[in-house]
Write a protein that binds this DNA or RNA. Structure first.
Lengths: 338, 338
DNA sequence: CTGAAAGCGCTTACAG
DNA sequence: CTGAAAGCGCTTACAG
């Protein structure tokens, strides 16, 4: 019972384990006849090398740890897909660990990675830099994605949330909207904060009065914000949510309450999830799959000693204009589906 | 340089590595004073045990390998989310590997798992049973999700696609539709085949003439099918796509071509992705997150010797009736958003 | 309660 | 070109 080991192969091929190792790893200091015997024996036994033992001896796991927060649907899958694509292309496996919303769990998740991976990809928009820094194994190459401040020696890849938000406000302004309300993301989340900052900055520059409703990135928060807006205490002709989920929740409630979008109120989001296209929701596109792949590429370069610089990178998001923010002078008519 | 090892801790605490191991693993045959010294030394050194070495010595990795095909957005994330939740609850990590559409890659992916994981979760609706059987390490506990035939000793968890499809056809029939076209999934995919089988069986039972258009589970296939339907060669009053993506593509083209849904043509899908709710698309709901969690639970039970029976399980999908399949007598009016 | 030693399954100088 | 041996970082009988 149990899988065959290198010793079983050695015995069957009547050579030493050293020769088996050399033959199977394609080293050239093996006689052709020996190599053939080894390969034959391995095939007969269905031998597959034990990756755990191999990585202990090589001090290389050919795996990278991925620590992600609780991400909404498409965002998560796109991110992992991008990572997996690049990782498998370069012969690495992904060890996944969800990290929920507190720092202790993050530390546990990171510790569990020790001795299994050659590097770490961390997305922690909600963890304070100091907490993160102390939880990260100092010697392990790591790339931070969309996280708080810069950590020394660890490249940070991020979206330029601020300029994305500014672009959206400018777009709304250009299309004739003057009372733009922002539905913010969760407290302490760095993406949320930067998007709100961009909103505020653009309002200031354009002479608009900012008004922020608190939210948490979930659809329900967008629905609640819509109710608040429908109550009518403040003037609103456009809503800019800090992500698409909230924008969609808001849109849904506004429409089912009889409001026309964008004729009565324009709605915009952030992220460009696939749903956005179908709802004709204007938004700011971030390419998370590409960022995931890029993060893996950078990390593997670091692991393999090809990246001494460790520079951070910023991806500029792209404004996506759709029907929910059409110019105020647009002809009336439903835009629910375009 | 390099992380601290158990020997560093032993040296600093002035005990043997055996005592360090015992103290840190909470065994009771350690004097309290010794334990304290060890814990103190470990903390001072920032010692984290090397999981790779630990699992080699214990012959237990506390990790499970997940091999998935290329899944569409929500389906993938929901599946992994369900798995991760249960895995982390029970102290296991997930080692992820995407398997693209061919058997060779599957074998490579599975081999790479050897010696890193205690068991395997395999979703391979597109791989032939014989190929799969030969690629699976015989001694490794495995649970099959939505895959072809039963493999001995490996529980299969699956959706009852057939009855789900039958229920949808019956629903369409009950609502007055008589010319129901099916857009099928890819050749060789077991889900696709079962859904088509259910469609055919229901048509036969209800005295309807089946008509199947080939597809591949992608949105574009739904769009192409819509074009074919719009060409008008065959009578169609309802379209039942083998998954939501194709249904959505079809819906999109029908509507932008001026067809009213469901007044002119009803549309139904399969899966119940989040988008479906927003488009008021009728569909058949499969709870993939729950199935993922369940698969992990079953696998860990097997690993821990708590499951001798290894019974397969079937999850019955649920019919979700929305506006795109409203009764033929329904009052006219847009149903794009409900 | 504690330590020296063997062993988990590999790789790789080292010597021949 | 090949093999015996040490070592990767742990755990655990075994003896004391």
């Amino acid at each position: 019972m149990g899988e065959a080991t290198i010793r079983d192969v050695a015995r069957r091929a009547e050579v030493s384990v050293a020769s088996v190792s050399r033959a199977l790893n394609g080293l050239d200091n093996v006689r052709a006849e020996t190599r053939d015997r080894v390969i034959k024996a391995a095939a007969e036994l269905g031998y597959v090398p034990h990756a755990g033992a191999r990585s202990l001896s090589l001090a290389r796991a050919h795996a990278i740890g991925v620590v992600l927060p609780d991400l909404h649907g498409e965002f998560f899958s796109e991110c992992v897909r991008g990572m997996d694509k690049e990782a498998s292309r370069r012969g690495y496996l992904l060890l996944l660990s969800n990290m929920h919303d507190d720092g202790d769990q993050a530390a546990v998740a990171l510790r569990a990675m020790r001795g299994r991976v050659d590097g770490l990809l961390v997305m922690a928009p909600h963890i304070a830099p100091a907490t993160l820094e102390s939880a990260l194994p100092p010697a392990l190459p790591s790339v931070m994605i969309n996280s708080h401040a810069e950590l020394p020696g660890r490249p940070a890849l991020r979206f330029d949330n601020r300029s994305g938000a500014e672009a959206m406000v400018a777009h709304l302004h250009a299309n004739g909207y003057r009372h733009i309300v922002h539905i913010a993301g969760p407290q302490g989340n760095v993406d949320a904060r930067e998007r709100a900052d961009g909103y505020r900055a653009a309002c200031k520059r354009l002479g608009l009065t900012p008004h922020i409703i608190a939210g948490d990135f979930n659809e329900e928060a967008g629905e609640a914000a819509a109710q608040e807006i429908l109550a009518g205490a403040i003037p609103v002709d456009a809503v800019f949510a800090a992500n698409d989920s909230m924008a969609i929740g808001c849109l849904h409630i506004l429409r089912t309450s009889g409001k026309r979008v964008p004729e009565d109120i324009a709605v915009a989001g952030f992220d460009d999830v696939p749903l956005a296209r179908y709802l004709a929701l204007s938004t700011v596109r971030v390419n998370i799959a590409e960022m995931g792949a890029r993060a893996v590429a950078r990390l593997i370069d670091m692991i393999e000693g090809k990246d001494q610089v460790r520079a951070s990178e910023t991806q500029t998001p792209e404004l996506v204009m759709r029907a929910t923010t059409a110019p105020r002078t647009a002809s009336p008519g439903g835009a629910a589906y375009a």
